[in-house]
């Protein structure tokens, strides 16, 4: 179990990929005050891949996800899903946010059934589907509760079930576990990996945690400090089912060391920029 460098501009693989980033740049604002958040990002996510993007804070990785979600439009370049240009939010791209995105006024069940209902699925069928996904994330008995009655970890499960219930082509996850405590986070990571193996969804996962990325990803991309560029990419293979102690294995540790090394340069650069900015 190890990581192996790959090229993200591999022409054949790009052509066959599910999700393609083609020279994506994003600049916020105009003139001298403007900030280049993402610079010429070229990447692809294959069908069924679990791609984690890791980078220092403020490197534009969330911006990249917002572009794929259709919440932001790129200043240059484009994102294509199954060959179609992404230019607005759509149900084929399910999004899980870090926090605060659940509908507080709806029960857990209503939250999860929202997507199917909004797309015209009959109420009874939407309800059954929502219940099935709530069962998948272990929250069946909380269906009638309101989000504020649930812990942070449980709320994130609801968010994941809500995205899955819509059966999207791609799952976009913007640091979904960043606000959780360590124990909850680790359990949810295992659960997510299990769900991914079962559903084989294409996943784009943003995180600043190298361990999380190595543990979850089938592919991993390291992003540079602002302006965010894609610095390195790896195929990743760490399976906790084959080895429950995989995160303390020699392969995992050396992979982590390699990524930490890459990111350290970037973090120093990011802090230097912040020092200049303030």
């Amino acid at each position: 179990m190890s990581i192996a460098p790959i090229a993200l501009d591999h022409a054949d693989r790009r052509a066959a990929a599910k999700l393609v980033f083609d020279g994506v740049s994003k600049r916020f604002g105009r003139g001298p005050e403007s900030v280049l958040a993402v610079q010429r990002a070229d990447a692809y996510v294959g069908e069924g891949d679990f791609l984690c993007i890791v980078g220092p804070s403020g490197c534009g990785k969330s911006t990249l996800l917002n572009i794929v979600a259709g919440f932001e439009t790129p200043t240059a370049g484009e994102v294509r899903l199954d060959g179609r240009l992404v230019d607005r939010p759509g149900a084929e791209r399910g999004v899980v946010f870090q926090q605060g995105a659940l509908f507080t006024w709806m029960t857990v069940l209503e939250n999860v059934a929202f997507g199917p209902r909004a797309r015209g699925v009959p109420a009874a069928e939407a309800r059954d589907r929502a219940m099935a996904y709530l069962e998948m994330v272990g929250l069946k008995s909380f269906a009638k509760r309101y989000p504020y009655e649930l812990s942070g970890g449980m709320q994130q499960r609801v968010g994941i079930a809500r995205a899955l219930a819509n059966d999207p082509d791609v799952l976009l996850m913007d640091e979904p576990f960043a606000a959780l405590d360590q124990q909850t986070r680790e359990l949810l990571q295992e659960e997510i990996k299990r769900i991914w193996k079962r559903t084989r969804k294409t996943v784009l996962w943003i995180t600043h945690s190298i361990e999380e990325a190595l543990f979850l990803a089938s592919h991993l991309v390291v992003m540079t400090a602002r302006p965010g560029r894609l610095k390195a990419a790896y195929a990743v293979d760490f399976d906790s089912e084959r080895d429950p102690n995989v995160t303390t294995s020699a392969g995992f540790t050396s992979a982590k060391r390699e990524i930490v090394g890459l990111l350290r340069e970037e973090s120093i650069e990011a802090q230097r920029q912040e020092g200049v900015a303030t």
Partner: peptide
């Protein structure tokens, strides 16, 4: 109204 919640609804396919 939180933009997050509106974005969440948009990406769930709501009109």
């Amino acid at each position: 109204v939180s933009i997050r919640k509106i974005q969440a609804a948009e990406s769930l396919g709501a009109s």
